[in-house]
Simulated assay, not measured.
Amino acid sequence: MDELIINICRATFHDEPAKIKRCSVGLANYVFIVEIKESKYTVRLSTEKNAYNDTVRLLGKLTEIGIPVPRVLYCGSFEQYDYVVLSYIEGEELWAVYKQLTKEDKKILAKEIVHIQREVSLRLSEHVEDWTWLDFVHEILDRAKVLIEENGFFETEKVIRVESQIPILQMYFEKVEPTPYLDDVTTKNLLVKDGHISGIIDVDWIGVGDVLTFAALTYVALLNMGYDTDYVSFILDEMDADDIQRKAFLFYSLMYCVDFMGERGTKYKDKVVEVNLQIIDRLNDIYDRLWNEWRSL
């Protein structure tokens, strides 16, 4: 695939890259970092037609309101691939630096990400039709159930137990409005440099609904890595989450835990999400911990 990247660089920069690095992330896309004349750029590829139309539109909107996202430099198609070339933002993803962060660092990052989310919610608008938050919740759980059945590494009963708790929060879910927010900014896609957020990457869509889900997804990711969850506690405090919101947050954490279970062993493009006995035991332990927390509320 390096030859393809070289050809795209020739067509866009009229030069060849000195270095090409395939990123380990990017399950839905092929992602590369290229270096041309001592400057770095991100190249993303997809076999899907018009794959980056929404990406280009959203990055433009986010740039306008001051959100630190990459700039779109070029986009087009080459052979059977659509591509987008983006400016490169310096920094490490949150998961890569988390263990080196102090509590004060985490508090600062939590304050910054909540500010970013509020800006997105207040200043962006996304048109949605035939939308309810309950439909979204059911969609996540239905997908988890299907993938768990197909892959066979976990018990679908765990999803069914979570589904059975929906009536407890039904009135809360019914009041959730289609508010825009960045729903995939978790331990990944959030770049950190010198103790501050330096950028947000891999923005292909904007979530609409309850912003608490990004905190819950981050929470499960941190538990899955065996890290402390102070950062998420600071996020909830910064959001002034009340008792019912914290209960919803815990439900979303269970929802994403079974979502993680469903992804294990699933193939995306040319990659299969890793699964082994250690991962299975860890996710089962996380589920049990979250379930016990939920039942104790």
Rank of each mutant, 00 (worst) to 15 (best):
A11K: 13
A11V: 09
K21R: 15
C23P: 07
A28S: 15
I36A: 10
K37N: 15
S39M: 14
N50T: 11
D54M: 13
K61P: 05
I65F: 03
V69L: 04
P70W: 07
S77L: 05
S77K: 12
F78G: 02
D82V: 06
V85N: 08
I89M: 13
Y98C: 10
T102W: 11
I108E: 15
K111L: 13
E112S: 05
I113C: 03
L122I: 03
H127K: 08
E149G: 11
E150Q: 12
E155D: 15
E155V: 05
E155W: 05
T156S: 08
I160P: 00
I166W: 04
L169Q: 00
V176W: 01
N189R: 04
L190N: 05
L191V: 02
D194C: 11
G195V: 07
H196S: 13
I197S: 07
I197K: 00
S198R: 01
W205S: 15
I206K: 01
G207P: 01
F214G: 03
N224E: 09
T229Q: 04
Y231K: 00
V232Q: 04
I235D: 03
D240Y: 10
A241M: 02
A248E: 04
F249P: 01
C257P: 00
V258W: 02
T266H: 15
T266D: 11
K267V: 15
K269A: 15
V272W: 02
E274R: 08
V275W: 06
Q278A: 13
N284L: 01
L290M: 01
N292L: 09
